[in-house]
Amino acid sequence: MSATSMETSRYTWGADEHLVVQLSESMSLRANFQAMAIGSDLKAQNIAGITDIYPGNASFLVRFNPDEIDPYEVEKIVRAAEMRLADGAVRGIETRICEVPVWYNDPYTNETGSRFRDRHQAPDMTDLEFAAAQNNLPSVEAFIEAHAGAPWITSMLGFVAGLPWFFQMVPQERQLQVPKYVRPRTDTPKQTIGHGGCFSAIYSVRGAGGYQMFGITPVPIYDPENKLPDFAETMIFFRPGDIVKFRAIDEPEYRAIEAAVEARTYRYKQAPVSFVLEEYEASPDLYNEKLIGALNAS
């Protein structure tokens, strides 16, 4: 991760109910941390008339009720928060690392992919074959190894209820980049591991989607009925800043975890960690090993 200075932020209205601030056109961990910090700052201010504060990957959205607060007042408040939390003011976060088991190259996402080849850049390849080729990797296996190797950080939530975006914690030249589908699919299996641009995501529910599909996890990430122990206090598992390690599993393990989920006994493997941006940037691979060590010791 290069520590180049932030581009100038850009303020723009989403008509009369939204202010959108783009901190950076490109993705970086620093832009993401700044978005999260501004979001927390605004939330703590508890401003009447501001209904939603939504930090994104490298931007954030504020939704307000213009009957209760003047939009220009919202802009003033947001600019002040951005000034306070300029690049460099955010050093790290207290968070956790969680393991997500993934059956890569599974029949469910492959079947779905085969139904939408007319919307894909490379109709003769599978999504995984296309992704490997796009990243100059020799095989699908090599791509999966890179995807499941280094951990990812939850940089944004949304699209649909509880869907996390993940940004891989590797130097920019090792980031996996794949274009989104040319036209979005109308179907994606629930709990698909998808990827678009530099982001991976887990589809929390079945539905439309434009990300390339690499695999599927048997573990729910959205549980509106609070069936699993990890969802006792929330219907949404991931929070911004959560660090995630994917682990490749085979069909027998997928079925075994599926059964544990069905029996409501499955627990996420997770451990609390402190994430310090500068320490990570000084030596990403060593830092990641330390994080994964904390996970495996849990």
């Binding site: 989403g14 109910e17 959108v20 783009q22 990957n57 954030f60 982001f199």
Partner: peptide, 9 residues
């Protein structure tokens, strides 16, 4: 394409 971002309603 843009870097994925929140969408206004």
């Amino acid at each position: 394409n843009i870097t994925d971002a929140p969408y206004p309603v």
